[in-house]
Computed example of a mutant assay.
Amino acid sequence: MRAWLADAERAGLRVLPPRSGWQAALVAADHVIGDHGSVTFYGAALGTHTVLGAFPDHELATSSPIARFGRAATRLDPDAPLLPQLAADAARHTPDRFAATTRLLTSVPGGSAAVLRSAFYKILDLAEPDRPVRVVPPEPPAAYRRGWPDTAGVPPLIATAEPDPADPTAVRVTRRPAEPVAAGRLSLRRPHTVVHADEPQTRWRDAADAVLCGPAPGDPWRRLADALAALPGTRLAAEADGDACLVLDRDGVRHRLVPRGAAAPDPTAYASAFLRLRRTVAEPDGLVCTVRIGDRAVRVGVERLGP
């Protein structure tokens, strides 16, 4: 299962452990996208905005509560952008929207175990014990550790860095997980590929325009040089240095990109802006530009450190 979902996980999907965790995720969710499974129905019963990504009507009894819910809930169009569909349906959602069907979920809330116990003993033609059931957890709770397919928490990224039409001195940087782009879900203008130095997949390493290193102890410039040597098609290597970003290009020139004021959450995004600057400015040393990332604008100064 993890192998089937690996590309989706690297694009940002979080796969919950099989026995626990889904309850907390369901309670915390703002939106639920599901199918004909019980968890989807539980989300609707909680009053959470719930839509359907798939719903095989032919597998369900038409008079069942879940089938009725399937006929009432909105079904997503896989060929249309997701966010506008979610927003439009959420705007008209109310917590009691599916109450006509979700109230059929159970007539004895919290009492299903006792009802089923009595039913099973009756089927077995045995007298039900008069003592209460001893309930113990099936296994000790343990923290869930994801591990593979994470590398350093940085999936391959497809980025763009374009002059901002609203400000000629600014560069707007966008970065998206590469997997949906590669699957043809997004069409971007003049993109470049950013990977981490620990990236395990050859196809992304070979496509990299920029490689990210760290965090790790030791000499960062040595790490950047080693990363460039390992990926001969890469144009530059970068690493966060506090709120700043260290950049080493293919010619061995070192630069430090320093925020002047409030910094971006991830300083390595400055490297994408630097790639764009190098196309239009022969030597950007001393240049100060605005890097726009989402709704944040960061003034970034370029300092050449050598050689």
Rank of each mutant, 00 (worst) to 15 (best):
D241V: 10
A11W: 02
D295P: 06
L157W: 11
A29H: 03
P18V: 01
S63T: 15
A3W: 13
A161L: 01
R190F: 06
R279F: 00
G43C: 05
Y121N: 04
P232N: 00
E303R: 13
A238C: 10
R278T: 11
R279D: 02
L186K: 04
S64P: 02
G218T: 11
R175Q: 13
R71G: 15
R254F: 10
F69P: 07
A8I: 07
V39L: 14
E199V: 00
H36F: 04
P140E: 12
R175F: 05
P215V: 07
P17K: 08
L5E: 15
V195H: 06
L16G: 06
P220F: 13
A24F: 10
V108A: 13
H93V: 08
A152Y: 10
V288Q: 14
P129K: 04
V51W: 00
V253Y: 07
A263E: 07
W4T: 15
E179H: 08
E283G: 03
R71F: 09
H93Q: 09
D130R: 14
P180C: 01
H93P: 07
A210T: 05
R75I: 11
L257K: 06
A119H: 14
P65M: 10
H36M: 13
P155W: 05
V32D: 01
P18Y: 02
I158D: 08
L231S: 00
P138S: 13
T40R: 03
L16I: 03
L5K: 07
T50C: 01
A127N: 09
E9M: 15
T101Q: 15
V181E: 01
